[in-house]
Design a protein around this nucleic acid. Structure first.
Lengths: 205, 205
DNA sequence: CAATGTGAAGCCCTTCACAGCG
DNA sequence: CGCTGTGAAGGGCTTCACATTG
C-alpha cells in the first residue's frame, strides 16, 4: 500500500506529542485525545497508524510508551543520524542551534561554507569546513543527510557535489528547483511562500 | 470557486521565476517553459492561473511583465507589509535577515523578546522591543502580520497577545498547535517534520 | 460499552484532453 | 498552427460509519 507522505509527516507530530505525555506521566491515550492535542481528527490519527500496523487496544486506547517506540522505529528515529548543514549564514546558524533536530536524535557533525572568513570558525563542538572538502568529510563522518542553506544560485552545484559523495537525502531551503536522481530523496522548504498565503488572505477579506 | 491554498503558494513561486526572466530580458513565456523551470506540469500552471482570470495569449504564451504584475496584485504584494518577528533567538535572527521576505516587499518593523539581555539590542535599523510593549507597538507601527519564533511553551500566550492587539495573520514556527479565532489566518511551519520524511525514506529502501 | 481498525464514500487537487482562439 | 483555458476524468487523502474486540 502507498503510504501518503503527509501521514509520515504527521507521525513525527504524534511522536512529539507522545513525548509530552510521557513527561507528564500519562500512560494511556485515545486517538481522540491525541487528535485534540494536535489539531486533527481522531479518524486521521487512526488511519495514519493503520498504514503501519495495529498499535491500540479497543475500548482503551494506546499505551503511550509503546506507541512512541513504534513510531520512532517506523520513522527510523531509533538510531542517531549524522547530518551536515551546507551554508554557514544566518539560516544555517539557526538550523544548527534548532533544538527540534537535536531532540529527534540528529547529530550535526559538519557545517560547510566556501567563505574563507567563515572556514575554521568554531561552532560549538565543530569547525566550519571548507566546501572543497565535502567528498572526504561526507565519507569520514558518515553523513547521510544534508541540509542545504546556501543562496539559490549555489544550490544546484552544491547538491551535485553531495550526491556524488554518496548523500541520498537532501532537505533544501534554497528557493530553487534542484535536479536530483530519482534514487535521492529531496524535500523542499520554501519559507517565503508560506507568508504569501497570509497576504493573499488579508487582501481578499 | 474555492481556490486551493496550494495554488496560492505556487503563485509566489511563479512570481519569483518571472522576476528572474525579467532580469534576463525575456518578454514572453509559455506555461510549459515556466513549468519546466519550476518543476511542475504545464497543466498545473495554467490551472492555477485560471482560478484568477485569463492572462495568456493563445498561440503565444504570457507576457512576463504583465503576468508578474497580475500575480503580485493577486497575492497582495503590490504594496509593502509591516511585519514583526516575535522571538530574538537564532531562528528569529535568521528570519530577520532572510532575503526572501525583503524581496517580496515585507518590512520587518519590530522584533519582540522578553529577555532583558536582548531587549534594546540593535538589529539593523531597529531595536529589540520588550514583549510587554506588544499592544502599543503593533498599533503604532501598523503591524499586520506576525512571525512567531519563540519556544513551544510560550507560543500560545504570545499568540493571544498579538490577536488581542489586532493582528489577523500569523506565521508560526513553534512546534505546537495554536488556538486562534477563525477570523485569524494561521500558517504553521514545522521544520523538524520535514527531515523525518528523509529518515523514513532512508530506513525503508 | 468504549475505542480501535478499516472498507467505502466523499472531496479536493491533479491530470487529461481538446475546444477555442489569435 | 501553437498555446491557452477549462470541463471532465482520475487519483489520493480525508471523512464517514460501523463491525469488531477487550
Amino acid at each position: 500500500m502507498k503510504i501518503p507522505d503527509i501521514s509520515i509527516a504527521r507521525l513525527s507530530v504524534y511522536a512529539r506529542t507522545l513525548v509530552e505525555l510521557l513527561e507528564q506521566g500519562i500512560e494511556t491515550v485515545s486517538s481522540r485525545q491525541l487528535a485534540e492535542k494536535i489539531g486533527v481528527t481522531s479518524d486521521k490519527v487512526r488511519k495514519d497508524l493503520s498504514y503501519f500496523g495495529q498499535f491500540g487496544h479497543r475500548g482503551i486506547g494506546y499505551d503511550v510508551e509503546t506507541l512512541h517506540n513504534s513510531i520512532t522505529r517506523i520513522l527510523g528515529l531509533n538510531r542517531p543520524w549524522n547530518i551536515a548543514i551546507c551554508g554557514a549564514g544566518n539560516l544555517g546558524s539557526a538550523l544548527f542551534t534548532y533544538q527540534g533536530f537535536v531532540k529527534q536524535g540528529f547529530k550535526i557533525v559538519a557545517v560547510f561554507d566556501n567563505n574563507p572568513k567563515k572556514i575554521g570558525t568554531r561552532w560549538g563542538r565543530i569547525e566550519v569546513t571548507d566546501s572543497r572538502k565535502i567528498p572526504s568529510t561526507i565519507k569520514a563522518k558518515k553523513i547521510e543527510i544534508v541540509i542545504i542553506a546556501v543562496p539559490a544560485n549555489a544550490a544546484q552545484s552544491i547538491s551535485d557535489e553531495f550526491i556524488s559523495a554518496g548523500v541520498k537525502a537532501i532537505l533544501n531551503f534554497a528557493p530553487v528547483k534542484l535536479s536530483v536522481p530519482t534514487s535521492v530523496k529531496l524535500r523542499d522548504v520554501d519559507l517565503s511562500t508560506e507568508i504569501v498565503n497570509l497576504t493573499h488572505f488579508l487582501s481578499h477579506k
